[in-house]
């Protein structure tokens, strides 16, 4: 009855690929806006993995975890964009490395 038409391995491979892309974005880009976008991509990939697992077993738990990730992403982006505004005001730049003076 609940035979998944789409093989779960392929969905998980897609989620892993998207996650790695987000990770590469975080590591490579130095613009804060792009860092935040890459974080969104990574969280979205996690959500995709949860949905795939939920679809595999036909249970709503995967979608609920996705909704919690959604709430987390919204909260994170609101605070982080406030920090971006502060960064731009204090350092007059969006480069994350300009804020590295606390590294001792």
């Amino acid at each position: 009855m609940t035979v998944p038409v789409i093989p779960i391995e392929h969905v998980l491979a897609l989620a892993a690929a998207l996650f790695v892309m987000g990770l590469v974005g975080v590591l490579v880009r130095r613009n804060v806006i792009f860092l935040l976008m890459s974080l969104e991509i990574m969280m979205n990939a996690c959500g995709l993995a949860f949905i795939a697992a939920g679809a595999k077993w036909g249970q709503p738990d995967g979608q609920i975890m996705f909704m919690l990730i959604l709430a987390l992403a919204a909260a994170e982006v609101a605070v982080a964009l406030g920090l971006v505004l502060q960064l731009e005001r204090r350092f007059d730049s969006l480069d994350i490395d300009t804020a590295g003076e606390m590294s001792g």
């Binding site: 959500g47 949905i51 939920g54 959604l70 992403a73 919204a74 982006v77 609101a78 964009l81």
Partner: peptide
């Protein structure tokens, strides 16, 4: 396609709607 229409709607409304507009 994975059988999660509610999550698909939320993805569009909240991610593509609210979060990207905030960006």
């Amino acid at each position: 396609l994975l059988g999660a229409p509610f999550a698909a709607a939320l993805e569009i409304v909240i991610y593509a709607g609210a979060i990207v507009v905030l960006f």
